[in-house]
Amino acid sequence: MKAVAAPLTNKEKPRKSRFWTTFIRNKYLYMMSLPFVIWVFIFSYYPLWGWTMAFQKYKPGKSFGEQKWVGLEHFRYLFNDDTFYLVLRNTLAMSFMGIIAGFAIPIIFAIMLNEIRHMAFKRFAQTVSYLPHFVSWVVVAGIVTKLLSAENGAVNEFLMWLGIISEPIQFMAKGEWFWGIVTVSDVWKETGWNTIIYLAAIAGIGPELYEAAKVDGASRLRQIWHITLPGIRTTIIILLIMSIGHLISIGFEKQFLLGNNLVGDYSKVLDLYSLEYGLQMSRYSFGTAINMFNSVVSLILLFSANGLFKKFTKESIM
């Protein structure tokens, strides 16, 4: 208010007064956004206070002042635990495989769908491909184990019919194949769904570009290379940066449902570890420590990915 009252001729504070003028002019917009700012604060920032638990020996039912402080003990335990490194390896491996497959395939699929001229078939293919997204992982895990079963499993039957193998393979019992199985099931389930956003981006490319290219005699492939792909570049990069941010927190649902004791060394992931060794044992503090580690790593990944892309491609989300 004071800033507005100050004479505009004052050269010292033009920035500030400009801010307040805009603020006044847009006061309704600011007021409208206020509930959401509060919402974000309550749900995203206020819980960060709970991070203090990671440095305590937290016991429920006691007030904050009564908790015992233990410093970095939980982190020390975490970084000295062999299991932690195992689950971290599994998490990162499946994450990277997921990002590579989960990126390349939907983009290729979106471009292929876009090239289909027959509208009815295009719609049909699109619907069929994204339907699995709505199937829960419990069901998908059931389908996958059935398909890969050594006992009348479709994949084994097919391979035996082709004569590639003479005895059924126990797919689900081979630890080293587990990451692949998870990635492939994920691709099957999510490709169609992830394609939608690229199709939307492709739809936003002006048709005059294609027409101009055609006039210049560009082939279909040339059009894809010089128009479609550059057209969705921004979308691709934004999504990529965001998924790099989520690299370490991939959930545990699919690994938990598809895994079994034989492949435990390859199927246990960080989130499951924090559940088993944290919450289930009432080690709330230890669980918090793991999640802090998670958040910090995610943040670092996000910022470095963002920074790298900003530098080399001039595209970024921040």
Binding site: A141, T145, K146, A173
Partner: peptide
């Protein structure tokens, strides 16, 4: 049964 350690409870 070869499936003993692979099968889920419902199976």
């Amino acid at each position: 049964d070869k499936q003993s350690f692979v099968q889920k409870y419902d199976q």
